[in-house]
Design a protein around this nucleic acid. Sequence first.
DNA 1: TCCCTCTCGATTGTCAGACAACCTGACAAA
DNA 2: TTTGTCAGGTTGTCTGACAATCGAGAGGGA
Lengths: 229, 229
Amino acid sequence: MRHNGHMPEAFATLHLEHSSTVDRAAEELRRAIFDGELESGTPLREVALASSLGVSRPTVREALTVLVAEGLATREPHRGVSVSAPEASSVRDVCAARWVLEGAGVRRWREADETHRQAVRTTLTAYTSAVREGGSYQELNERHLAFHVSLVGLTGSPRLVAMADELVVELKLALAQVERLRRNAHDEADTHAALVQLLEDDDIDGASAFLEKHLEDAAAEIIEALGLS
Amino acid sequence: MRHNGHMPEAFATLHLEHSSTVDRAAEELRRAIFDGELESGTPLREVALASSLGVSRPTVREALTVLVAEGLATREPHRGVSVSAPEASSVRDVCAARWVLEGAGVRRWREADETHRQAVRTTLTAYTSAVREGGSYQELNERHLAFHVSLVGLTGSPRLVAMADELVVELKLALAQVERLRRNAHDEADTHAALVQLLEDDDIDGASAFLEKHLEDAAAEIIEALGLS
DNA sequence: TCCCTCTCGATTGTCAGACAACCTGACAAA
DNA sequence: TTTGTCAGGTTGTCTGACAATCGAGAGGGA
C-alpha cells in the first residue's frame, strides 16, 4: 500500500469520510437548530441530550463546545449552553461584515480566476433553477446564501470564504427563527441575476452599489421579520 | 444584596474573571506557543499535558479543542493534536485577508466614529512609545498588530474586528517561529505614523495604497524569514 | 404582607479509571 | 518486494462519581 511515491496521482479522488461521534452529534444539533426544531434560547441540557442521542455526557459536552465555537450556541458558566438568540444589532453587523467581504469579491471580478467567476455563475443557476422548480424554503435559503459566499470566493482567499461561511451560519440561525412565520419562499433570483449581469457587463461600480443596497435591504427585512426593533 | 434594581449604574465597572480550568489550561498553552516554547509541529499529548498542568485528561481535551478551533493547533483523527505549522500559502492568504479587512477600515476613515479614529491614534502612540523605550520583541509585536486591528475597528463592525483578531493569531503563531531566528526588533513605527498622517490629511486613496504595499511587504518578509519558498 | 435567609434539587465543572478502536513501526512470511 | 501479523502507544468514548454553583421554594422576622 505504499504506492504513493511511485504513482502520486493514483486514487487521488478517493476520500473516506472520517466522522467521529462528536462530529455526528454536532451535525445533528446543527440540523435541529437550522430546521427550527430548537428555538433560540432553548437550553441544551447535557444529560438529556446524552440520552436522546445515545451517547455519553463527555461526548455531548465536546459537541456543545463545537457549537459554541461556531456561534450557534452560547455558554454561560454554571448555567449551561443554550441556542443563541439573534439580536437586531448582530443581524445588522453580520450584513455589514458581509458587505465588506462580498464587496471585496465583486470589486475583484476582473482580476479573479476564471474558475471563481464560473463558480459564481454556477451557484446562481443552481439558485434560479431551485426557485423555478419550487424547492423547499430551506433549499432556497441554502442556495441563495451559497451564491453570496461564491462572491467572496472571487477574492481567491480561503480565509475570507471561511469567514463568510461563519457569517452565513449566523444568518441561517436567525432565519430558522422566522422560517415558520413567513413561508413565502422569497424569490430574489431576478435580483441576483441582475447583479451578475452587471458584472458580466463590466459595470463593477454598479454591481457594487447594487450589492450594498441588496444587503441593507436584507438586514432590514430579517430584523423586521424577527420582530426586533 | 439585591440592590441591582435600585442602583443600575453602580458597580458597572466591576468585572470578576470567571475563569474555568479549561480556560486557564488553554491560556497556558497559548502562552507557551506564542513564547516559542512549543515549536510548530510539536505533538500535544493529552496524558503528558494532563500531568504537566495538573489537570485531568478530559480538561486537557477541551482545552485542545479550543486551540484547534482557534487555528493554533491541528487535530488529525486518532493521531492527536499538534501545533499548527505556518505555510507560505497561508501567510500570503492571511495578509490578503487582512488587506480586505484593514482596507475596508481605512476607506471608512471619514465616516468612522470619532471614538474609533481616536483608538487608531492611541494604539499608534502605544506602539511608537514602546519602540522608543525599547520594549521586548513580543511587546512590540503585540502593539504593532493591535494597531492594525484598530484599523479594522474603523468599520465599526465587531465581527470584522473578531475576524481580524483571528487572523492576527495566525500571524503571531508564524512570528513565534521566527522569533528566535531574527532578534532585530523591527522598527516600523515610522511607516505606521506615515499611514496615519495620510489619513489625517484626508488622503484616503494614498493611505489605502500605502497599506496594501505594507501588507504585501510584510507577507514577503515573513515568508522569507520562515525559510519557505 | 413583605423581605431576608436558608436549604434543597438540578445542573454543570472536573476528576478518575477503564476499554475499544486506531495508528505506527517492526518483524515474519509468501 | 509485497503482504500478513503483532506489540506498544495514543486517542475516542464510556461509566461513575463528587464538588461547586445556580434557581426556586420554604420558613422566619419585621
